[in-house]
Design a protein around this nucleic acid. Structure first.
Lengths: 339, 339
DNA sequence: CACATCAACAAAAACGTTTTTGGGATTGGG
DNA sequence: CCCAATCCCAAAAACGTTTTTGTTGATGTG
């Protein structure tokens, strides 16, 4: 634990001023290539690493990005978002300071205060699933990118999954397998995914000239037990669907249970596609559940890269609001329709 | 985005020196109560918040705790650990800087370097499940607490789940329900949980005078499909067990599937208890899975609190290695043995 | 009454960088 | 050959705090 070597020691060892060391390492100033290289190798040899507190103090760039999210615990999604963000940040020589509010705005405000005290360069404001948000007042004037969240402000960049596109992809897969009577196991929360996925379902039917049949749409809370109940209802129809598109994997698991109770075998009697690609479920179900993956990792990366571009004041720094495509992950829950 | 108010403005507004403001707010120095109170209210009124970069630079205390983990994405556990750590940190006026290595030691080393450059006060070195670790060289001399990880170093504090205790609790629950023929669906990884949970299984049997029957122990990889296979084997025995204790919830889900395939109903024909309390599974299974919860949130809290105590150099600052108790979460997968 | 002690505060130094300003050698133009 | 421009680099200021050292007046002590 010997005292860390500072810029002074490097300067002394290289026989130059601290100014020259600073410029050599950060690429600024007018330094001859020879000197720059020499200083760099001396610094390397001494194992010099800058003190970010000091450099941030003067330069006003802490290289810290604040990551604030509403919830980080109940799903594995959060981890992938964080992972993508962290890896992208590391590539920019930045590091993440995380704060999560547990859906409590008082806690969130205190967390944001803490981040600002630490002079974060910018903030990723994330939600655990796609929703509309209102940015806390404390963040006005702070470079911010929304992740899995959208707002009515056009001066903020944001990234969310393409809900309607995800539903379209799922439906096209079922349609391609030959299904024409496809049920939708939907949710009832008032979130963007609700509208978007239903819209995708209807758009896919329309694109194939299949009339929308209200009796094939059943809804419930987006969890396993309600999914089971809703699926049971639609499967009890005399003219039951040959395939189900489910709002998410948890509801799909309920659909599996309902199919089992009804004596139906997947995918022989019933095909299923859903959204989430929640591996612990999708891989574990028997047969494996074909599901649309939400691009959490990619959204994390994108948010950091966007923020970095805006911080750098680059030419393309106009705010962007994008919808990320969601890829289909094939497993074994889809087959041709029976008979 | 007006320039943030600094300690100078507060000093001027309160008619004192910056020294006095600093002492008043941090509780140091010799300041009369009257002055201290006045300065505080002035600071409050001006909405003053200290610049942590500057204060850390001088005081050598950044109030940042580094959180390094091997993996943060595949399970929801990570989130709860982070949540506990973050909430405890906030109570100490600290904030978390997270880095995860994705099991790549090069990435981990770079992440640790970044944390050290940012002058973290200490580090929580976490694994996503209980395992033995060797601390990276860069961390020597840095206050560190191990989380869900253990090492042979007695100078490091660490916290892990009480694996054997967890198994004992699970077994006692089955024994209390009247079961005497209890199978163990075990794993094959070389990790502490393997030995601990098996030991707990045997200890519980011994405590009740039930001879250990090797034929009731089947093992596999700790996932759903291998769990299903292993469970099928033991359920095919002429003299099959009336209950299964499973290594984790994913294997337990396999046991559910095996029971189903064998025409057995849970819990009428077969009772099941496992470890993880992985809610997305345990709640979703039909019937709900009784499971032992791993105390992730609590371990996160404990690690931060321990680190804070060691940083403060408190009287009780001798390193501790503890095992956390794991509570049983009741659902519907346990009943009396058949007949 | 002289001196030491102490309480309450202020002035100045320090933390380790980056940025601003300055300045000497070299080069180029007339 | 002189002056301006250019290239390299160094000295010094600055960032916003905390810590160290000083100062002043009041209080106590022998």
């Amino acid at each position: 634990m010997s005292k860390r070597v500072g810029i002074r020691e490097v300067a002394a060892a290289a026989g130059v001023s601290v100014t020259t060391v600073s410029h050599s390492l950060s690429g600024g100033g007018q330094i001859s290539d020879a000197t720059r290289e020499r200083v760099r190798s001396v610094a390397e040899g001494l194992n010099y690493a800058p003190n970010r507190l000091a450099s941030g103090l003067r330069s006003k760039r802490s290289q810290i990005i604040g990551f604030v999210s509403d919830e980080i615990s109940t799903t594995p999604y959060a981890g992938n978002v964080l992972l993508g963000a962290q890896e992208a940040a590391a590539a920019n020589d930045q590091v993440l300071m995380v704060v999560n509010s547990n859906r409590n705005s008082r806690i969130e405000d205190r967390g944001i205060d803490a981040l600002l005290q630490h002079s974060v360069d910018g903030i990723i404001y994330a939600r655990m699933y796609h929703q509309a948000v209102k940015l806390p007042a404390a963040l006005s004037g702070v470079p911010t990118v929304l992740l899995d969240a959208s707002s009515d402000r056009t001066d903020l960049s944001s990234v969310v999954p393409d809900e309607e596109g995800a539903a379209l992809t799922a439906m096209e897969h079922l349609l391609a397998a030959g299904h024409r009577r496809i049920g939708y196991l939907g949710n009832i929360d008032e979130i963007p995914a609700t509208r978007g996925r239903l819209a995708g379902y209807r758009a896919a039917l329309a694109a194939h000239g299949i009339p929308f049949d209200e009796s094939l749409v059943t809804v419930g809370e987006s969890m396993t037990a309600p999914g089971r109940d809703a699926a049971s209802r639609v499967l009890a129809l005399a003219d039951r669907p040959t395939a189900l598109f489910c709002f998410n994997d948890r509801m799909a698991m309920g659909a599996y249970q309902a199919a089992h109770l009804a004596g139906l075998e997947i995918p022989r009697d019933l095909s299923i596609v859903s959204i989430d690609n929640f591996e612990v479920l999708a891989d574990a179900l028997l047969p494996g559940l074909t599901s649309i993956a939400l691009p959490h990792y990619e959204m994390g990366r994108w948010a950091i890269e966007r923020l970095a571009a805006e911080l750098a004041g680059e030419a393309d720094s106009a705010p962007q609001q994008i919808q990320m495509p969601c890829p289909l992950v094939l497993r074994q829950s889809v087959g041709p329709p029976p008979r």
